[in-house]
Structures are given as C-alpha cells and as structure tokens.
C-alpha cells in the first residue's frame, strides 16, 4: 500500500491511472502540471510519483529535476507518450527511476510501482 502522486494534465489519464492504482490497494493524490506536482510532493511526501512530461506551466522533466533537488530520495517514474530516444535518455539521466510509454497496460504500471516501493 503506497501513497502515489499522479501528475498529468489530462483529467482522463489521471482517472485511468487512479483506477488502476486504487484497485491494487494504493492511495492516490493528483496534480495537473509540474508546478502543482512540486507543491503536492512537498506537502504529502508520496512514496512514488507518476509523472507525465507534456504539461502546461511546467513540464514533467523540469518538475522531476526540481523535486529531486529538494529530495534526492524521491522516486519518480515518467509516464508519457513522448517516448523518443532523446527524451527517455534525458529523463533517466535526470533521475527518473523508470519510463513508461503511453498507451500502457495496467500490469506495466503495477509492476513499476511494486519495483519502486516493494
């Protein structure tokens, strides 16, 4: 049972991820962009962050870097449609623990969660 912060500008995607995670027994909080993500992380210190990349206000890679600056132990998994080589490499180099390309199977999400939080 983990506290997961789901970050995505699409309410639809947040709903889908939330359903998968809650069904597996996890607790979910949400943010709609990188700025909200940083704020929610500070307030709640979730066990794991599922972070989209393409968002208004602040993109996910920038938010990831800022969260890790604040808390180097933060566990952030990127969940994005932008799965091109240069992006994946940048995400991992910046400290993402995993990169899940949309569209994804629910198992891929749950496996990633299990791997990061046990």
């Amino acid at each position: 049972m983990a506290l997961v912060l789901v970050v995505d500008d699409a309410a639809f995607m947040r709903m889908r991820l939330k359903n998968v995670l809650v069904q597996d027994g996890h607790e979910v909080i949400e943010a709609g962009n990188g700025v909200e993500a940083i704020e929610m992380y500070r307030q709640h210190r979730p066990d794991l962050v599922m972070m989209d990349i393409t968002m208004p206000e602040m993109d996910g890679i920038t938010a990831l870097k800022k969260i890790l600056q604040d808390d180097p132990s933060a566990k952030i998994v990127i969940c994005s449609a932008l799965g091109q080589e240069s992006t994946v490499i940048e995400a991992i180099k910046s400290g993402a623990k995993d990169f899940i390309v949309k569209p994804f199977q629910p198992e891929r999400i749950l496996d990633a969660v299990k791997k990061q939080v046990g």
């Binding site: 393409t54 449609a81 932008l82 091109q84 080589e85 240069s86 992006t87 569209p103």
Partner: peptide
C-alpha cells in the same frame, strides 16, 4: 490526440535522431 500524435512524432524523431514534441 496526444498519444497518437506523440507516437507519430516519436517515430520521425527517432528515425532522424532529433527532438520533436507536441504542446499540451
């Protein structure tokens, strides 16, 4: 649209080793 459009751009980006990303 984001998923389909990004898949399209990913294909081109990786083929030409460049970066091409959509806005929200």
């Amino acid at each position: 649209g984001n998923i389909v459009g990004s898949a399209f751009l990913n294909h081109i980006a990786d083929h030409y080793h460049i970066y091409a990303a959509p806005t929200p």
